[in-house]
Design a binder for these strands. Structure first.
Lengths: 233, 233
DNA sequence: AAAGATATTAAACCCCGTTCAATAATAAGG
DNA sequence: CCTTATTATTGAACGGGGTTTAATATCTTT
């Protein structure tokens, strides 16, 4: 695939933006900084991206792509029980969010926007340019896809007996996702407090994952993979 | 308690700010708007609050106070099992966050700042005025207090048998908190998607709470209150 | 009533995202 | 190859809005 000059420069700007957002944060990164680092004039960045928010959306798009690929990678490996997949997903998710803070921040930010979007009173506050952004709809789709894959994992678990059969797949998966989102959100603040509590929390991650497993665990051994042919989708 | 004129006006501004942040959102609310609505000049708001962020911190403070009182109210009722308390807490938390979007947004925002604060590289990005804010340290404390109360609830559950004894109180409580935070965060976005998935998610809340209970449930009946004398703190 | 502290205002300031008119570079067509 | 449209690129100007400031008014205190 021959990349046009335009696409190349667009990518350059995006890469610079990611780098700066990562090191300095979104708010502290000026459009001028991005331009300078990319070796172009400030005005030109507006030729490639509608505005700063649009640039951030492009970052978010990359984040979601990577995010979805994590889901897919785990899902496509055969010979694992549903519970094992969910467990792997949890680990991968935590690793991902910790290794890519901006990506994760971007995803969280996006979810916040969608939340506003659902609220009629708040919807009009959203910068219309965001909604017009070519990325916005695509992001909704990707998020949806991730959900679908996750639900399939739980469904597998229900079928292969690794997850308690009385659970409902959608509810269960979204609850797990909730836990993961909240885990990241709390990890920092809680860890910070220092003093007594911090010590015990060093083993939060294993404890967290274990609790999740307990919540789901079905009739078969959780960690011993179980071969099942799943007819999914 | 005789309230000084200064405190009264300060409170007026704060109330106006809360009202406007609620209806228009933080970013869309201009300092001028706040001033006008409060019947004062823009400059004067800077006499009572260091800057916009400081004003938001004051809102956050109110949010956390209310938040903590929820924890306390539930905790002080006698004759409930630990599991029941946690269950009540979950319901109260969800109600609170849905009834007070700005308050909840403020709490989330604060947690985000603390997260930055823990990261040496990111710490310097934080507006120093925030850290200097008289509220900041107090907020950390309140958050800490909430954690302590929650942990006590779990501890009660461990003692009275309503929560599985092999669990560790801190880890368990923070995991539950994670779930709650994530639940709110996902509720909007997931609900939005419309189509197939939405239908099933209408029963997410009960399913969510039930899953949480299953995760914790110990040897005694969960929802039937169990009188125990807890020697806490 | 004078001196000092406290409130209050309007205007100025400045940062930064955004727009724009002018110019250069490239591509297309005859 | 020269002309003409199209696409890139720039630097300067614009404008919104948070923040500062100098001047003024309103208490307090003695």
């Amino acid at each position: 695939m021959p990349i046009s000059a335009r696409e190349k420069k667009s990518k350059l700007i995006l890469d610079v933006a990611i780098k700066l957002f990562t090191t300095k944060g979104f708010a502290s990164t000026k459009m001028e900084d991005v331009a300078k680092e990319a070796g172009i004039s400030k005005g030109l960045t507006y030729f490639y991206f509608k505005n700063k928010e649009d640039l951030y959306m492009a970052v978010t798009k990359k984040a979601f792509d990577e995010f979805k690929s994590i889901f897919r990678e785990i899902y496509k490996v055969k010979g694992k029980s549903g519970l094992q997949m969910i467990t792997d997903l949890a680990h991968a998710y935590i690793d991902f969010t910790q290794a890519n803070k901006i990506y994760y921040a971007a995803i969280l930010n996006f979810m916040g926007i969608v939340q506003q979007y659902n609220n009629e009173e708040l919807r009009r506050q959203i910068d219309p340019l965001i909604l017009e952004s070519e990325h916005f709809q695509k992001l909704l789709e990707i998020q949806h896809d991730c959900g679908k894959i996750g639900i399939q994992m739980v469904t597998m678990g229900l079928r292969d007996g690794s997850i308690r059969p009385e659970l409902q797949a959608e509810v269960t998966f979204y609850t797990i996702w909730s836990m993961l989102i909240g885990y990241e959100r709390l990890m920092g603040p809680v860890g910070y407090e220092g003093k007594e509590i911090k010590i015990h929390l060093e083993n939060w991650k294993p404890g967290f994952v274990k609790l999740m497993q307990e919540m789901l665990k079905g009739t078969i051994q959780a960690n011993k993979p179980q071969v099942v042919q799943a007819s999914l989708f």
